[in-house]
Nucleic acid binder design. Structure first.
Length: 423
RNA sequence: GGCAGGUUGCCCGAGUGGCCAAAGGGAGCGGACUGUAAAUCCGCCGGCUCAGCCUACGUUGGUUCGAACCCAACACCUGCCA
């Protein structure tokens, strides 16, 4: 157990902003506390961007505190203002189905049977928001909010200056603040954590609690993960990296972390793994001395994939990655190893007989988005079959080209590999 | 409600009758280098039955041999006024 959780978070680079850090540290040093973080159901799954919050809840729990994971069944129906523009409202039944899926995902990261007072709990703000009347919201909650201050919030200000903002989204802050108030009353919850973009919403809750109850509670935000060029972290091949294996396969998930750029390895190891300081510092040293070994990326990918997909899947995708990206010839792998590796990677099955044109196979395996893109890849010298560069877009593989009589290994560029199994 | 401006490809943005699948930038992709990294350089970057054709510049209709560009109506956005 970590004796000083706040100190540990600071070392890990997980504190972007907080209310009085001395008081916060003291608060968590002197007893088992309850904290929460909220997750709005805006999609059927959480993605890697949410991971930081979930794992930070877990760190608090491992330090003996009680985490509440809130799913925004109510706030998800409203939508937190984004600078980019008004969100599209989703139908309540759809949001409800997302709530269920996200509850399941959250539950795998926290311990619900913990001893003492540290057992985690899942809560849904729809439970207390649904029954609230308009009068209650406006009189009991709204009266404590200054529109002047709400307008100062970055996302709101940006929207006012550009596309405008609906009353619906403008009201979001009231609901989130009320969540904090509710959890403070029900569970003596005294800390809310979130991404640094949530600072305004969280401190609004802190203020509300003080005004309504006189109570003093805390706020802590984690830095948003960004790449070295300032780009948003967590996108892969144009899409989000999801935690749901049906949306992002464990193989792709593992590959995402393996491809982490060197400069991000130290901060990610600290932020998303549970290794201790000595170990992380050793890995960092090794990564800077012998970066080509990618030991930091490997540790990172292994740990995060294990957290999200479990030990077994991690072992499978590690073996697959080692086979597909190993130095040896793919054809020298035995049939079982190759088959297992290609099954983890994206793959398609085609019937024996005359095989499709290679451009069609590139599309079928989603290595290329269209036939034009596939032809382009071949023209540019970026497409390979069985590690041999293709030169003819009209090429059609024959029986002789199959490895072990039934496999074709397709590759686009250096990293994207897919299998074709002839059955 | 009135007046003005705007709506272009994944994003930003130029284009105001034929030379426009549409400048430039970003993102993305490939190649070279390397380490499944970053940076850099080069190339690509709507689709297809690919020397051609089809879709596309808010929507619908019109003018024209020909429209992203002109006209009309509608929708939405922004600003100013009420």
């Amino acid at each position: 157990m970590i004796s000083d959780i706040i100190d540990d978070l600071a070392w890990r680079g997980l504190i972007a902003q907080s209310t009085d850090q001395g008081a916060l540290a003291e608060h968590f040093r002197t007893g088992s506390r309850t904290l929460y973080s909220g997750f709005d159901p805006t999609a059927p799954s959480l993605h890697v961007g949410h991971l930081l919050q979930v794992l930070t809840l877990r760190r608090f729990q491992e330090a003996g505190h009680r985490p509440l994971a809130l799913v925004g069944g109510a706030t998800g129906l409203i939508g937190d203002p984004r600078t980019s523009g008004e969100r599209q409202l989703h139908d309540p039944p759809l949001v409800a189905s997302w709530v269920d899926r996200i509850r399941g995902q959250l539950s795998q990261f926290l311990d619900f049977s913990a001893q003492h007072d540290a057992s985690a709990e899942l809560v849904n703000n729809l439970d207390w928001t649904q029954s609230m009347s308009a009068i209650e919201l406006l009189r009991d909650i709204g009266k404590h909010f200054s529109v002047n201050r709400m307008l100062d919030r970055e996302a709101v200000a940006a929207r006012l200056a550009s596309s405008g903002i609906s009353y619906t989204e403008f009201s979001y802050q009231l609901l989130q603040s009320n969540d904090y108030l509710e959890l403070f009353r029900r569970n003596d919850c005294t800390l809310q954590i979130g991404g640094s973009d949530q600072w305004g919403n969280i401190t609004a809750g802190v203020d509300l609690i003080r005004r309504v109850t006189g109570g003093h509670v805390h706020a802590l935000t984690t830095p948003l993960l960004t790449k070295s060029d300032g780009q948003k972290f967590g996108k892969s091949e144009g899409g989000a990296v999801w935690l749901d294996p049906a949306l992002t396969s464990p193989y792709s998930f593992y590959q995402f972390w393996i491809n982490t750029e060197d400069t991000m390895v130290p901060s990610l190891l600290r932020r998303v793994t549970f290794r201790d300081r000595e170990e992380i510092q050793a890995i960092e040293a090794d990564t800077s001395e012998r970066p080509q070994l990618r030991s930091g990326q490997r540790a990172l990918a292994e740990d995060v994939t294990t957290l999200v997909h479990g030990v077994e899947h991690t072992a499978s995708v590690q073996a697959a990655s080692a086979a597909l990206f190993g130095k040896g010839e793919l054809a020298s792998l035995d049939s079982g190893t190759l088959g297992a590796a290609l099954t983890e990677a994206p793959h398609v099955r085609v019937p024996a007989g005359e095989l499709p044109l290679v451009v069609d196979l590139l599309v079928a395996t989603e290595l290329s988005a269209s036939k034009s893109a596939a032809r382009r890849a071949i023209d540019e010298g970026g497409a390979y079959v069985n590690n041999v560069r293709l030169t003819d877009a009209e090429w059609r593989p024959g029986a002789d080209d199959l490895v072990h009589g039934r496999w074709l290994i397709l590759r686009r560029g250096k990293r994207a590999i897919a299998g074709v199994e002839v059955v």
